[in-house]
């Protein structure tokens, strides 16, 4: 990356950074608000909703993490979403490669349209027959049912997105590896995967976040407390007549952290891999 410093202009750099960070802070503002509220005593959440500075307390977090099953929900979400994301990315990588490197096999167009077609039906109606299916398989309250659901729900986007990225990767790489005697799977995971890493990270984050947010399947398929996930736990704080906003706020802060941390980690790795890759080629 050193060669890029040739065209650095200090003033323009500063303006760019200030503008970029400023915009991000404005975008983050509603969430910063949530963070502030999460440190308020319950009695001040309603009466001082709109004041910036109020009494500071950690009670909400203490109650959330010690007095409620929320840590269990957090662990469940982490396990289910991580497994589902990894499997979804691996499968969609193979699938996208199949579509990307074979442009005219019979049925290709139809299959691609079918993949998109899965996105058309409203889940709130699909859930009834799915409940019946999972129940007949004895998988209600089995986290595997959620893992399968999240893989299936995320596959279409992952396939399409990776297909877009793989199409931009030159075939010379495949050909060179094939001449060296690599099998297709080796090509996908040893040759293509490192090059497609930015796309893979994006797809993985998408799959993770959408699984992390998913409510309907989790609610329907995981009814017992020990199997619930974060969004369902969060919904439990909302009652017909009262809502525990203090816990809702603390819970949403806690529940956003894993995703942010995972993504920061992936981003750093991505940056180092990219520079490493740049050296190699």
């Amino acid at each position: 990356m050193a060669n890029q410093s040739i065209n650095s202009h200090p003033v323009r750099d500063l303006v760019t950074v200030v503008l970029g960070v400023g915009l991000l802070l404005i975008l983050a503002f509603p969430f910063i608000w949530v963070v502030l509220i999460s440190f308020r005593p319950e009695s001040e959440i309603f009466t001082r909703t709109f004041q910036l500075i109020t009494t500071f307390t950690l009670d909400n977090y203490a109650m959330l993490l010690e007095g409620s099953p929320f840590p269990t929900y957090l662990r469940n979400s982490l396990v289910v979403c991580t497994v589902a994301t990894i499997v979804a990315v691996v499968i969609s990588m193979v699938t996208a490669y199949g579509f990307s490197r074979n442009r005219r096999f019979r049925g290709r167009q139809t299959l691609l349209i079918m993949v998109i077609a899965t996105q058309l039906f409203p889940f709130v109606i699909l859930i009834t027959p799915l409940y019946a299916t999972f129940f007949s398989l004895g998988m209600i309250n089995n986290p595997l049912a959620l893992v399968i659901s999240y893989i299936a729900v995320n596959l279409p986007f992952c396939i399409y997105m990776l297909l877009g990225y793989l199409d931009t990767i030159p075939r010379d790489l495949d050909d060179a590896a094939r001449i060296d005697g690599a099998t297709t799977l080796q090509i996908i995971f040893r040759v293509i995967l490192p090059v497609a890493w930015p796309g893979i990270v994006t797809v993985a984050v998408y799959a993770f976040v959408s699984a992390w947010d998913e409510f309907l399947f989790a609610l329907t398929l995981m009814t017992s407390d020990e199997n619930k996930t974060v969004p369902v736990g969060l919904a439990g704080f909302f009652g017909e007549y009262t809502t525990q906003w203090n816990l809702v706020m603390a819970a949403s802060v806690v529940s956003t952290l894993p995703t942010l941390i995972i993504f920061m980690f992936l981003q750093r790795k991505l940056v180092s891999d990219l520079s490493a890759g740049a050296v190699k080629t």
């Binding site: 969060l234 949403s252 956003t256 981003q267 940056v271």
Partner: peptide, 18 residues
């Protein structure tokens, strides 16, 4: 780079109801 790319995620990881 990694920081701004992570900060941009904040709205997206906020649960919709919140």
């Amino acid at each position: 780079g990694w920081l701004v790319r992570s900060l941009i995620l904040v709205p997206w990881v906020t649960p919709p109801v919140v």
